[in-house]
């Protein structure tokens, strides 16, 4: 009401005829951006929801309404639960690796020493590499016959013979997680570093004078104060990790067997290989709802933490 009063006042004091209402003005200003978002997000989203309730296979001419049958088919299919589990294993491990490594890296970069600026700049290299090229890079490092990882591990005595890392069972998943984390740690590090820099130095110095060692200071001062930042990092990283696709496409194609078939990969296969757009859309909706659910849970958690 106050805003309206102010607005009316300013309209009266200036030339009233040239003044467009602010709401309409805002709409005019943001029209091009909103139009693009509507065409590329809202309309497709609505159509994806429509598709998820139809039998829609490109190989068939008839596309009848199917109600919840696509969803039913998915939820009663073991393959779905397998890929959901794979997605969770991937997301939980990757987010854990990313957050822990990024936390320690940020602690390092928060120290005062010559060369810190260079390190921070170099950290942008893995971040700037496109996902696909990151996958290409790791595929080469892990090459079964000519990869440098095999050479290094053999030199270090960890393996006797060269290993086909990406086509054997547990190692394929482990390396996908490592390759994915490698690229995503830098951004998380920068975010955590920004959080660290808001913690007053005097607080840590006072604790040091009181005789608290580095571990105690981290545990009782840094970590609690960093909680909001860490929650934001966790939200973003989890949402991104659940959508993983690019790196799977190049590194493993969901294999060996189904061991790296995450939800994203199974949506891709169902839709664009099996041409079953109905089931693919329903799967994509499930992934979307899952993402939304996780975002809300994290958000509630963050909210509660801030109120405490």
């Amino acid at each position: 009401m106050g805003a309206f009063g102010q607005n009316a006042l300013s309209t009266m004091t200036k030339n009233p005829s040239s003044e467009i209402p602010q709401g309409r003005l805002a709409l005019i200003f943001s029209a091009p951006a909103l139009l693009i978002l509507a065409v590329t997000v809202l309309v497709p989203l609505a159509y994806a929801i429509y598709l998820s309730f139809h039998r829609y296979n490109l190989k068939r001419a008839k596309r009848p309404f199917a109600g919840f049958r696509n969803y039913e088919k998915i939820l009663t299919d073991d393959k779905f639960w397998d890929s959901l589990a794979t997605s969770f294993i991937f997301a939980v491990s990757a987010v854990a690796v990313i957050t822990v490594v990024a936390f320690f890296l940020a602690l390092l970069l928060n120290q005062d020493f010559a060369g810190r600026g260079i390190l921070r700049a170099l950290l942008l290299i893995p971040w700037a590499i496109p996902d696909v090229v990151n996958a290409l890079l790791w595929k080469w490092l892990l090459h079964p016959a000519f990869g440098v990882m095999n050479a290094l591990f053999q030199m270090g005595g960890i393996i006797d013979q060269y290993v086909a890392w990406l086509t054997t069972m547990p190692s394929a998943m482990i390396w996908v997680i490592i390759a994915y984390s490698w690229k995503n740690i830098p951004l998380a590090t920068l975010l955590i570093l920004a959080g660290l820099q808001t913690i007053p130095k005097t607080l840590l110095e006072a604790a040091e004078l009181e005789g608290a060692n580095a571990w105690k200071r981290t545990q009782y001062i840094t970590l609690p104060l960093l909680r909001p930042t860490l929650t934001v990092v966790l939200i973003f990283e989890t949402i991104f990790a659940l959508k993983v696709f690019d790196i799977i496409y190049v590194l493993t194609s969901g294999g060996p067997g189904k061991s790296t078939t995450v939800l994203g990969w199974s949506i891709y296969i169902n839709t664009f290989k099996k041409l079953d757009f109905g089931t693919g859309s329903a799967l994509a909706m499930i992934l979307g709802l899952l993402t939304l659910f996780i975002a809300i849970v994290f958000y509630a958690f963050l909210d509660r933490g801030e109120k405490q």
Partner: peptide
């Protein structure tokens, strides 16, 4: 998710 939009 981009995949949800990709289909339509």
């Amino acid at each position: 998710p981009a995949l949800a939009l990709a289909i339509p």
